[in-house]
Design a protein around this nucleic acid. Structure first.
Lengths: 118, 118
DNA sequence: CATATATATTACTTTATAGTAAGTTATTGC
DNA sequence: GCAATAACTTACTATAAAGTAATATATATG
């Protein structure tokens, strides 16, 4: 949803999202409001995971969507990606501080969904 | 996002959303995870509003998207719709109890979005 | 009887998101 | 030298969400 995000050295982000800049709700939804993003973030709450394991925790996600999702989350500063130069390759993903600051929201969304429909 | 929702007399909802039924996070996102739904719900937090006023509070939303959004929110039991049989027509929307139970989430999404990018 | 009103709908197009399936890379161990 | 491995990547297709613009309704008012 967000069109582009630029990042300065200071790590301050300048958003170029037209209307979203005026709408915190849409801004947040633009960062996490896709089919797979909340799930990826949620599974990282308990700690970093290597790529394959993280993907296995999310049944139904395709290769393509997995990569695309983590790429965007990384681009938006919500997760970090660490590559270990070994063969076969090893990559670990974990939440950044910014990503962790969503913990409360992620757990609320999860809680609401499981309490509902009772 | 949700494929269908059936509702019993008891008001218990039976969800037919394939994977979502197993995933509270996706279930919640399926109900509120579109461009306009969080905004509509947010603006109703302060109390019921008649149709035109609610729509005016959401700059950029088209007629079509407004109607579609409130229809789905109503279908999913998050808002209620009251028609006054007058001419010209008058319609009021307000949160149901179920909708109000999202207040905490909506405010968190809004807060996160406004605190971020500082 | 034409206009204004508030709410809503429809047909159509565009854009965004997601899915499928095959291919790529680089090295180790047989 | 070829299969196995983990982590991607690409080309292509399909589906879903959103946008545009015109039209519908019912009636009271001038």
């Amino acid at each position: 949803m967000p069109k582009r995000v630029k990042r300065r050295k200071s790590n301050t982000c300048i958003l170029i999202m037209e209307k979203n800049i005026q709408c915190p709700l849409n801004y947040t939804m633009g960062l996490i409001g896709t089919k797979w993003k909340p799930l990826v973030l949620f599974h990282l709450l308990e700690g970093g995971l290597r790529s394959g394991l993280l993907q296995k925790k999310i049944p139904g996600i395709s290769n393509k969507m997995f990569t695309q999702t983590v790429r965007e989350l990384e681009r938006d500063g919500l997760i970090s990606r660490k590559v270990f130069p070994v063969v076969p390759p090893k990559v670990e993903y974990k939440l950044t501080d910014r990503g962790r600051s969503l913990e409360h929201i992620l757990r609320s969304l999860d809680k609401w969904g499981s309490e509902d429909c009772s």
